[in-house]
Design a protein around this nucleic acid. Sequence first.
RNA 1: GUCUGGAUAGUGUAGUGGUUAGCAUCUAAGACUGUGGAUCUUAGGGCCUGGGUUCAAAUCCCGGUCUAGACC
Length: 368
Amino acid sequence: MFKINKKDEKTKARTGTLSTTHGKITTPFYMPVVTKGAGKYVTFKDLDKLDYECFISNAYLLYLKPGLETLKETKGYHNFINWQKAIFTDSGGFQLLDPTFLLSINDKGVSFRSPFNGDKHFISPEKLMEIQNTIGSDIAMVLDHLLGPNETYQAHVEATNRTIDWAKRCYDSHKNKKQLLFGIVQGGTYKDLRNFCAKKINKINFDGVAIGGLAIGESKENMYMAIDYSLEEIDENKVRYLMGVGSPEDVVISIGKGIDCFDSIFPTKMARHGVVFTMNGPLKLGKQKYRDVHVPLEKGCDCYVCKNHSKAYLHHLFRVKEPNAKILLTIHNLAFMQRLIKKAREEIINNNYESFKDSFLENYKPLD
RNA sequence: GUCUGGAUAGUGUAGUGGUUAGCAUCUAAGACUGUGGAUCUUAGGGCCUGGGUUCAAAUCCCGGUCUAGACC
């Protein structure tokens, strides 16, 4: 259940608490992506030490491997991986964008190809609820029909209607009282479709409402508008989850619009590619200019990496392709996201979110 | 010292007379947002040296230099 504790007076930002079977999560929050039962280049122990209260895994991929039998034997995914805080599970809807996964889609559900052995699997909304029930995640997501930004308006109309229909079917077949269920708003970047879909999803008694189908190639301007169109029709007291978005500037802007929850591969993927987040903007650690810079990645950062290592050392590890480079940069970026969002919560409590947002965006330069 | 082989981007290599000299890596710039872990895009950079043959040489011939191995 979701409870708002404080609203910022000038913006729509708010801070609250999302209660789950495995603990409470303070909003707004960002969660890392743990697709197949592990974060890339980061352990659960480190996620715990970085104060992450939840992450998101992929129900479809867990269904394929290790499979539901294994998860039943361990009485759920939490025990299998030994993580006792909250877990979200994503539907696999995002994989609809990947032609190597998607075989076909119709009103009944989705046919996926297994990336492990090529086997065909049919997933209906009801089947997905069963899968997520067996996984035992704290927050399940409905099956949605996600389209790329270049599809036609008519295709978006069909996908939106299908998403609404599937949302109802997911809601009706969801029986696990210990598990929250979030609906998902689609509709591309079209105002009428976003409004319509959000209104319909909002009407179903979901525990939270997600905004999906964004940050997949559309312009920033269109993305922000689509967020606004969606939020217009979502009750204020519902927790709002912006799926897939996780660049620092998008998070700061979206919190100001009233988003409570984010997930994204962006911070960890950037880390693996040598891009380090700082309050002054991202820096490309692989550049020669950092070769002899014997200071931490970011002044004032209290993460393990900044307390122990210099830019020069991390630059060296990255250049010689030592896996530790990816591990350490991942830790820093995940610590950065926590620091950023923690700061955002404080500013909301102080009714100072607008000036915080403005000054962050002014200082967060696109390139180092 | 003798014999044989080899010399093509920074590195490793493909290339039997006509190629914009290919590939990998590298360097530089950009990209990346509900994860196919090592990704993608663009750019940069080379025929050891001197002669000769030929319309045309990285390619064939001769000398030099460097280098690898074998033998004295």
